[in-house]
Computed example of a mutant assay.
Amino acid sequence: MRAPMPQCPSRPGDVAGDVDETPTDEVPVPGPGDRPMTLLERLGWPWGVLGAAIPQVVFAVAIVVVPLLAAAGIALAVALVQAAIFRARGEPTTTVLGGVFGVAIASGIAVWTGSASNFFLVGIVAALIGLVATTASVVVRRPLTGLAWNALHGGGHAWRQDRPARRAHDVATLAAAAVFAARFVVTQWLYGIDSTGGLAIAKVVMGTPMTLVAAVVAFWAFRRSTRRLITPTVRAREDRLSPG
């Protein structure tokens, strides 16, 4: 009578590798709850983006009826209230601290210089920096949305060698550059004519709506990269781990 053939030990990472059929932890299989946060979510979307314009609009309204110092204080108080609400909602720390920090700097510059328009100077400089950074990243063939996608998915992906994925991120990053360029040109012109009300309106009109447009393009580039570089790997892993 022949002795029974010994069973081969399970390979590390096999889902049915344990005797009690408990999945092993050596090769995690992504699940619905394992989706990485998107860039907008890390920045506090939607409340961080939607709430960014509120203190500036409040400042533009307040400066009409109260002195500069009081208007700056009111705007800062609104930012602090927003931060408390965001914190209570469990929003990211960047949302809570970023809004307060930005309004505090803007208020300080306006009070220090004695010019209400300077309250919006931080946003103008930020738009210029964003324009330069996004444009330069495309020129050196390292578009910022691609770097963000790679970082949010653990790093190490050959997205720059995949021409369709890199082109998608070129388009997405250039879309962001166009948004920054439009904001800088318009707000710089309004700043030059000392239009505090116009700057507040521009902040609302060119804030959330234009951010959404750029986000849609970035979302398309993110999905394209994921389908090309991550989905095939996950499917191959699932096929390898499936019984039979």
Rank of each mutant, 00 (worst) to 15 (best):
W159A: 04
R163W: 15
A151S: 07
L121P: 08
Q161F: 12
A116H: 03
G102T: 14
H153K: 06
T113C: 04
R141W: 13
T135H: 05
V111K: 04
A151L: 07
H153A: 05
V122W: 09
N150Q: 04
A110L: 08
G114S: 09
A133H: 08
T173A: 07
A116Y: 12
H169I: 07
L144K: 00
A175S: 15
T135N: 09
D162N: 08
S115R: 15
G114A: 13
A110Y: 02
H157G: 00
A165L: 11
T134F: 09
T173H: 07
N118S: 15
R163N: 12
F180Q: 02
R166T: 06
G123W: 04
V111Q: 07
D170W: 14
G156D: 05
V179Y: 09
A168I: 09
Q161N: 15
V139Q: 14
F180K: 01
R160W: 15
I105H: 05
I109N: 02
V140C: 05
V139L: 11
A175P: 03
G102H: 13
I124H: 01
R167E: 07
V138I: 09
F180T: 07
L97E: 02
V96G: 00
V111W: 11
G130N: 10
R167L: 14
V132G: 04
R160H: 08
A172D: 04
A177I: 05
V103W: 02
S107A: 13
R160C: 03
G114H: 14
N118G: 11
W159F: 10
S115I: 11
A126W: 10
V138K: 01
F120Q: 06
P143N: 07
R163I: 15
G114P: 03
R167T: 12
T135V: 09
F101L: 12
A176T: 11
R141I: 05
R166E: 10
G108S: 12
I124T: 02
S117L: 10
I129V: 02
I109D: 01
A133I: 08
A177L: 11
A178K: 09
A181V: 13
G154F: 13
G146R: 03
T135M: 07
V171H: 01
A151W: 13
A175E: 01
A177P: 03
V171R: 03
G123D: 05
W112L: 15
T135P: 04
S117E: 11
A177F: 07
A133C: 13
L97N: 12
W112N: 15
A110W: 03
A106F: 06
T145W: 12
G102R: 08
